[in-house]
């Protein structure tokens, strides 16, 4: 081998500075893009408004469908902020050369993903806050209480983590942002229909329930129903209970699968 004369005295900036910088870049990229703000943030709120006004029937135990829908639309909002957002934005950045440019800088690769995580976190929290506010003020959906907040937090966090990882993995399948959107939007819509977002899950045909239970959205919605609905309604679930242990298990498995897929498929440039 050749002797190398590479320098070892080159200084790198502190990681925290790079992480902060990437976080700020990602927040600006999201909130300055009208399409992403409307599609990801406003759309769930509009749906809540429409469904709350139209489907205000009693689903039992004196609970309105709007309250049921709150769990579903928050789950769908998290899906949009994480899976759909990541798949589309990363596919776009890969096809327009942003990722390749970053790969040529001394930026640590971890900083890119930290920035994305901060973006997902910020958008997710914002969606949840807005949905809770609109649901509470316009439709009288009560806020969760006591230990339900803990369930709320871990279901949302675990679901967002699984869907972020899946979104990063899915971005590698698409040629560009547009094709990522064409791929992931219909899938998300179908999943929303069969996972108990727009209808009560108990009204979905059994074979569709089976398909839905393979994917994270159904488990996020179910976990969140345990937060927003009284426990008597657990009887309406397929298993007759909220199955929170199973929610944690399936979402955890999707995190592992998503991470493996990311590591196997992530590319910094177009093929």
């Amino acid at each position: 081998m050749t002797t190398t004369t590479s320098r070892t005295d080159v200084v790198l900036p502190p990681l925290t500075r790079v992480y902060r910088s990437r976080a700020s870049v990602e927040l600006k990229e999201f909130f300055r893009q009208r399409e992403s703000v409307v599609f990801t943030l406003l759309f769930p709120v509009i749906l809540l408004g429409v469904f709350g006004a139209v489907l205000d029937y009693d689903i039992g135990a004196g609970v309105s469908f709007t309250q049921y829908f709150m769990a579903g639309i928050i789950a769908a909002g998290i899906l949009g902020a994480s899976l759909q957002n990541m798949a589309i934005s990363i596919a776009t950045e890969r096809s327009d050369g942003t990722l390749k440019h970053l790969a040529g800088t001394p930026m640590p690769k971890s900083a890119y993903f930290i920035g994305k995580v901060v973006q997902v976190l910020a958008v997710t929290v914002l969606i949840i806050v807005v949905l809770l506010a609109v649901g509470g003020l316009a439709y009288g959906v009560p806020l969760p209480s006591g230990s339900d907040w803990v369930t709320f937090a871990w279901v949302a966090a675990l679901g967002a983590a699984a869907c972020t990882l899946l979104g990063i993995a899915v971005s590698s399948l698409a040629r560009n942002g547009r094709s990522a959107s064409a791929m992931v939007t219909p899938i998300a819509l179908v999943l929303q229909f069969i996972s108990g977002v727009f209808f009560q899950f108990s009204q979905v045909p059994t074979w569709m329930q089976t398909i839905a239970s393979l994917f994270p959205l159904k488990w996020m919605a179910q976990g969140l129903r345990s937060v927003f609905l009284p426990d008597v309604l657990a009887a309406q679930e397929p298993a007759g209970s909220w199955e929170l242990d199973r929610v944690a298990l399936v979402l955890g498995l999707w995190c592992v699968a998503g991470l493996v897929l990311c590591v196997l498929t992530f590319r910094w440039q177009d093929r």
């Binding site: 590479s6 320098r7 070892t8 080159v10 200084v11 790198l12 870049v25 600006k28 990229e29 300055r32 893009q33 776009t92 950045e93 327009d96 050369g97 942003t98 990722l99 390749k100 440019h101 040529g104 800088t105 001394p106």
Partner: peptide
Amino acid sequence: RWKAQLGIVLQSGAGDSQL
């Protein structure tokens, strides 16, 4: 550390941005 010593202007540019 090696990359920190390089400056790279790609033929394909540095991508689109809202920044």
